Amino acid sequence: MRAAEVVPGRPEASRVVDRPDPDRPGELLVEGLLVGMCGTDVEIIRDGFGVLPPGRDAIVPFHESLGRVISSPTPEFAPGDLVAGVVRRPDPEPCAACAVDAWDFCRNGKYTERGIKELDGYGMQRWTVPPKFAVKLDPTLGDAGVLTEPASVVAKAWARASAAAERSHLPVRSVLITGAGPIGLLAALLGVQRGLEVHVVDRVTDGRKPDLVTTLGATYYSDLAKVTADVDVAVECTGVAPLIWECARRASVTVLAGIAGEHDPVPLDPSVFDGIVMGNRTVVGTVNAGLPDYRAAAEALSEASRPWLHGLITRRLPLDRFTDALAKEEDDVKVVVDLT
């Protein structure tokens, strides 16, 4: 089989190699169909983020997966089933969170992640996965099944927002989403599915992103100042500090799903801080996802419009040209690599 390999921080060393088919008794054998490129993959390849498998000088990238089962050790899965693989694995000790399969809340940092931290990813034509870490997908999803992992991140964000709102006795009627990338658009999808009034803000003024938002029945803005509606929940997907503060100022519950990275410090308006305290507001971060979130994501995708989901996939590259996905093109939403 053929597989992508990368050396973190050395994009020029990226390549496609021949590897033997994996053989791990007790695991599903899966034909890799598609993988999605996200910002984490770019940070690994370009900037050196991530951790190599022990004793290795390269790692197979990609954690957003879609595959078709070839063989299964359990009747839960059958040949031909569409599946996505879970990214994170619990730490070996385990910590209190990993001991109850809440590895997305790992407390000691000793978890591993496929394609990111110490484990090969899904960027290969054949891969295996323990049944516990595979999620069966609606067969009618087709290529849109590759959106399962980012949708799981969004499902977890909504779970955290819902828990905070319930604790605060907050009836959630509206949501503000900042950023119309894959995470923001999927957050909008789940908001619409919940019957909420959805407001999405991004910098672009026309093209695919505004169209995808309005097709959902949500409202699109290219300027946050134009959002005058009251919002109960905010899902911040950009990591841009002024937007973070503005979300925390406006919403009773804010979920931070974007990474700021290295930027110059931005002062915090004391009125925002005072508003959080005096308003009993909640600001939480979220990263990765657990099994309940993957299952919720699979259900949300199953219920979504197929044309709308396929509209998120804006570019498709062959495995031999997977590094072309590093360069973002105008109107890109989700770029995928075809492993077949």
Rank of each mutant, 00 (worst) to 15 (best):
L52I: 07
L243P: 07
L243R: 09
G123V: 00
I276F: 04
E5W: 02
L312I: 08
G32E: 01
S252F: 07
V240Y: 15
V35K: 06
L176N: 08
D101Q: 13
V51W: 12
A251R: 14
L137N: 08
T128L: 01
G80Y: 14
A84E: 06
G48K: 08
F322E: 03
T148N: 00
A188Y: 01
G67A: 05
A241D: 11
P53S: 10
P292Q: 04
D104I: 09
N280F: 08
L29K: 01
A157C: 15
L312C: 01
V333P: 00
P79L: 01
E246W: 07
A241H: 11
N280I: 10
V198P: 02
G217D: 02
V7Y: 02
P54I: 00
A3F: 09
T215S: 03
G48V: 04
P139S: 10
C247G: 03
V69G: 02
R15S: 01
V235G: 09
P150E: 11
V201D: 12
R68L: 10
L212F: 14
A58P: 04
S222C: 09
C106D: 01
V69P: 00
S14T: 13
V284M: 11
D101G: 03
I183H: 01
I244C: 02
D338E: 10
L186A: 07
